[in-house]
């Protein structure tokens, strides 16, 4: 049996269109190579059947949701990879330049820490940070007030679509 037999073309197209609409509405873009995007969406649906959630097609899922939360699509690493490389690890999501065909999407280095490092981070509960010290800077969209805690502001505000340069360091 082929690994992709279980998912119908109709379901793939329906999800691709939904993701396209949602991406557009929130300032993200899908890979303009439609066949490429279709294959990834098919894999997401296949992983939905295998694991019960959209585990990233290009990463090894543990099959235990609590251990795979960071790689449920869209993954925790997407935005940083969009900023740095113009595409997420699978290249389902791409930057404006890639979407416009100004540069190709390529296979990029893995940003997700390896399994042993993830286990260690879970064990030491790195969320419990000392008061007054934040693990990440907080950015504020000066147009709509959207706040986010991450290394860098997003390329486009997911709420009002303001560009990255409209963000200020808030905390």
């Amino acid at each position: 049996m082929s690994a992709t037999a279980a998912v119908s073309d109709k379901a793939v197209d329906a999800l691709l269109e939904k993701l396209e609409r949602e991406a557009e509405a929130s300032g993200y873009r899908l890979n303009p190579d439609r066949e490429f995007a279709r294959e990834l969406v098919r894999s997401l649906l296949l992983n939905q059947e295998r694991y019960g959630y959209w585990a990233c097609p290009c990463r090894l899922a543990a099959g235990v949701k609590a251990e795979d939360l960071d790689i449920i699509c869209p993954c925790d690493y997407r935005d940083a990879d969009l900023n740095e490389f113009g595409a997420c690890f699978c290249a389902l999501y791409v930057s404006a330049e890639v979407a416009a065909g100004e540069r190709p999407a390529a296979s990029i280095p893995e940003r997700r820490p390896p399994a042993a490092a993830r286990r260690a981070a879970r064990a030491d509960g790195s969320l419990a940070t000392p008061a007054g010290r934040l693990p990440l800077p907080v950015w504020r969209c000066k147009v709509c007030g959207y706040l986010c805690a991450r290394e860098e502001p997003p390329g486009v505000c997911p709420i009002c679509k303001a560009k990255k340069e409209r963000f200020e360091r808030f905390i």
Partner: peptide, 10 residues
């Protein structure tokens, strides 16, 4: 590789 991975396929 992984059976679902697009870069593996390529």
């Amino acid at each position: 590789g992984l059976s679902t991975c697009i870069w593996c396929r390529k």
